[in-house]
């Protein structure tokens, strides 16, 4: 005797699978949505001495310590990925890439997923250089920083943040829409299959 010989068992089993698929789609959607709620400053450090990287965001109150975030850079690693969460809306972004004067190589993105829904910070976007001699574009979009000798607070400001945030919002909506379309197709397919399995003799 088979497992699903009884009709009610078969219907219950198929309905349970359908419910799981729908719940799974709902949960995946809400996780993606919550992940895309706040953008982040994504830093990929290729070469650096041990130091700290710090970012300030201006929400109308100027640069202040309560609206800042910092992370340690461990110089021993050849590659280190760092993520600093930013608020959803802000008008300006200041980045203090180092606390020392040693040269650095890093790649900077603002967004959520670095290759898919983000904006790369290029030397052209860096304005208001302070104690930074130059920023050059290296391989793979790396930024090569050279600091002034004896510097103690090197930093720069990322320009055109409101426009960048608008662009990010468009990418966010695009990503969510793509997910919703795929989820809709899956939900329809699962429902159809469930209904078909009800009809099976």
């Amino acid at each position: 005797m088979g497992l699903t010989a009884l009709k009610c068992t078969r219907i219950a089993g198929a309905a349970l699978v359908l419910l799981t698929v729908l719940a799974m789609l709902y949960l995946a959607h809400s996780t993606l949505k919550s992940n895309l709620r706040y953008p982040a400053l994504m830093v990929e450090v290729f070469e650096s001495h041990p130091t700290c990287i710090k970012s300030y965001w201006n929400t109308g109150n100027g640069w202040n310590e309560s609206e800042a975030s910092s992370k340690k850079i461990h110089g021993t690693y050849k590659f280190q990925a760092i993520r600093m969460q930013l608020p959803r809306r802000f008008q300006g972004l200041r980045i203090d890439p180092s606390e020392t004067c040693d040269p650095q190589e890093m790649r900077l993105h603002i967004g959520w997923f670095k290759d898919w829904a983000s904006i790369r910070i290029t030397p052209e976007r860096a304005t208001g250089l302070h104690q930074i001699q130059r920023i050059e574009q290296g391989d793979d979009g790396r930024l090569v920083f050279t600091f002034e000798p004896g510097c103690n607070d090197p930093h720069f400001i990322v320009s055109a943040i409101p426009e960048a945030l608008q662009l990010l919002e468009a990418k966010r909506i695009q990503l969510l829409t793509m997910f919703r379309v795929i989820a809709g197709i899956i939900a329809t397919l699962a429902t159809l299959l469930t209904l078909l399995s009800f009809r099976r003799p």
Partner: peptide
Amino acid sequence: GILILVQAKQIEK
């Protein structure tokens, strides 16, 4: 999930 629904017949076995 879809595979389970498709293979429902096999589960019956």
